[in-house]
């Protein structure tokens, strides 16, 4: 059984912790939504799990898997949407593990990219410039890249922010297929209805863990109120925790 184990993890920037003393397990094959107020540390947690941010304390351990098994979709804001590049080239980056910085792109890979574009509803977009895409189309393109990456674990940071309803619906369908294939999904999300309908597990975060488990038990009125209160009362300039304590 593959899993991602967090042991007393503290993550942050400039030595100011953004996520505090988090412990728990993402079990293989589950779909977990990370929810919480703005500034709760959701993206920070995702970056930590992906290995892009070294924990200030504690440890993130992968069991039965490696980072190579993980695909990561950053927030759209972190992508240069005006970059002069064709949709096909952007999708083909999904083969990075195979082609790397120097390898050739085979005909089969190009065909696979075309197929992935069809699957996300972007038939005939291969030759277009990414700058010409709408936000929704761009997200479809990035999902096509995830399809090519073909990873057992998929991390998504606000995949539906500013994305139209139709695209959200289609991409949720893709995520359902991924779950059916036994992949592990971890997604930062805002829409609680979405989470209740599509994610059996949730992690409610407000700089520290409020609740983690079955979505129904996590997204209760009490928990959500506690999360809001925890974030409102947070002191931005809080010093590091004393050794061994909160």
């Amino acid at each position: 059984m593959s899993l991602i184990r967090l042991a007393d993890v503290t993550l942050g920037y400039e030595r100011h912790p953004a996520v505090h003393h988090l412990s728990g397990v993402f079990t293989g094959g589950t779909a977990t939504a990370i929810v919480g107020p703005n500034g709760a540390g959701k993206s920070t947690l995702l970056k930590g799990v992906m290995g892009l941010l070294r924990p200030l304390g504690g440890a993130i351990r992968l069991e039965g898997m490696t980072r190579r098994d993980m695909a990561y979709l950053p927030q759209q804001a972190e992508i240069d949407a005006d970059f002069p590049m064709t949709v096909q080239d952007a999708v083909l980056l999904g083969f990075w593990r195979r082609i790397g910085a120097f390898g050739a792109v085979s005909r089969a890979m190009v065909a696979a990219a075309e197929a992935a574009l069809d699957k996300v509803g972007l038939e005939g977009f291969a030759r277009r410039q990414i700058a010409a895409l709408s936000v929704g189309q761009r997200q479809r393109m990035l999902f096509a890249r995830l399809l090519l990456q073909d990873c057992p674990v998929i991390l998504l940071d606000e995949p539906f922010a500013a994305v139209d309803a139709r695209t959200t619906h289609d991409l949720l369908g893709l995520m359902r297929a991924w779950r059916a294939e036994g992949r592990t999904l971890i997604a930062v999300l805002h829409d609680f209805d979405q989470v209740r309908r599509h994610f059996p597990h949730s992690l409610l975060l407000a700089r520290e863990l409020i609740a983690w488990g079955e979505t129904g038990a996590v997204l209760t009125e009490d928990n959500l109120a506690a999360a809001r209160a925890a974030c409102d009362s947070w002191d931005e300039q809080a010093p590091l925790c004393p050794e061994g304590g909160e």
Partner: peptide, 14 residues
């Protein structure tokens, strides 16, 4: 790739 999507490149280890 580093210009287009630096987060992706770091995630795939480049």
């Amino acid at each position: 790739v580093e210009c287009f999507d630096p987060g992706f490149l770091r995630a795939v280890g480049g």
